[in-house]
Amino acid sequence: MTTETATDVFEAHRPVLLGVAYRMLGRVADAEDVVQEAWLRWTGTPRDDVREPRGYLVRITTRLAIDRLRQIKARGETYVGPWLPEPYVTDFGDTVPDTAERAVLADSVSLAVLVVLESLSPLERAVFVLREAFAFPYADIAAMLDRGEPAVRQLAGR
């Protein structure tokens, strides 16, 4: 029997959740808000109903980020000047990644990728981030977004 609390489980996945939210939204404050909302939903969910906490939490975070993107668009928020994502420093904890890991991290959060993400719809952005940055299979992404796998593949192709 495990003695892991809801907080322990959530905190273990927080870096991934922040990564998903940040890569989708491009702003640290928005990403943190989305992760906080995911926490509130997580605490209100009976743990017996959740077989895979990581998948469940990524699903919630992705949907909340999509909602946030739609709200931003609906409010007509605009940014004066060229859009650049807010820098976000990843905390590696006690481990320091080797050179290869640093290169992969640099690629996954590169400025160019974030600028390209800005041109995608919220669903296209979610598929891209989940597939390219976090290597989720199309079937898992389809389940997270309540879409069919062919539709997810089509979104990825765009």
Rank of each mutant, 00 (worst) to 15 (best):
W42R: 15
A156M: 00
M24G: 03
L145N: 02
S121H: 05
A139I: 05
E77H: 11
A74V: 07
T78V: 09
G81M: 06
R70V: 10
P87N: 05
D98L: 05
L117E: 06
D48C: 05
L105T: 06
A6V: 06
A6D: 12
G81P: 10
R125Y: 04
D67F: 11
H13G: 05
W83N: 00
L114Y: 08
A139R: 15
G157Q: 11
G44L: 09
R41C: 14
E149L: 11
V129L: 13
F92R: 03
T62F: 00
T2L: 08
G148D: 15
T62I: 03
R153Y: 00
P87C: 05
L84K: 03
A156E: 13
R125P: 04
R75G: 14
T95N: 12
L25P: 11
A151Q: 13
G19M: 13
V152H: 04
D8Y: 04
R54P: 07
V152Q: 02
T2H: 07
L117Q: 13
D33C: 05
F136D: 03
G81Y: 00
W42L: 09
T61W: 01
L84T: 04
R14T: 01
F92D: 13
D67E: 12
S119M: 04
L105A: 10
A151P: 06
G26A: 01
Y22R: 06
I141H: 03
A135M: 08
V104W: 13
L18K: 13
S121V: 02
D98H: 00
D8N: 07
V20H: 03
S110F: 04
A135L: 11
Q154M: 02
L25I: 02
R41N: 12
S110P: 02
L69C: 02
E86D: 03
D98F: 00
D49V: 07
A133R: 09
I72N: 14
E101W: 07
L111W: 14
A139M: 01
E124P: 00
L17E: 10
V113T: 08
E86N: 06
R41V: 10
D98T: 08
I141F: 07
V16I: 06
A38L: 00
G81A: 04
A103T: 04
H13I: 01
A142L: 12
L120Y: 12
E37G: 10
T61F: 01
P53W: 14
P122G: 00
A21I: 08
R23Y: 05
W42V: 14
Q71V: 12
L120C: 10
V109L: 07
P53L: 02
L17P: 12
W42T: 11
G157R: 12
L123G: 02
A143H: 08
P122H: 13
W83S: 08
L155K: 14
A12D: 07
L57K: 01
P150W: 08
Q154E: 09
Y138E: 03
D94W: 14
D8W: 15
W83I: 15
T95P: 12
V20P: 04
Y79D: 14
V35G: 15
R147L: 15
T43H: 01
A6I: 11
V129Q: 01
S121E: 08
E4W: 13
R47I: 03
W39M: 10
L17N: 01
P15W: 05
W39P: 09
E132N: 06
T95G: 09
V34H: 00
L105R: 07
D146Q: 15
P53C: 06
R14S: 15
V28N: 10
E11W: 07
M1N: 13
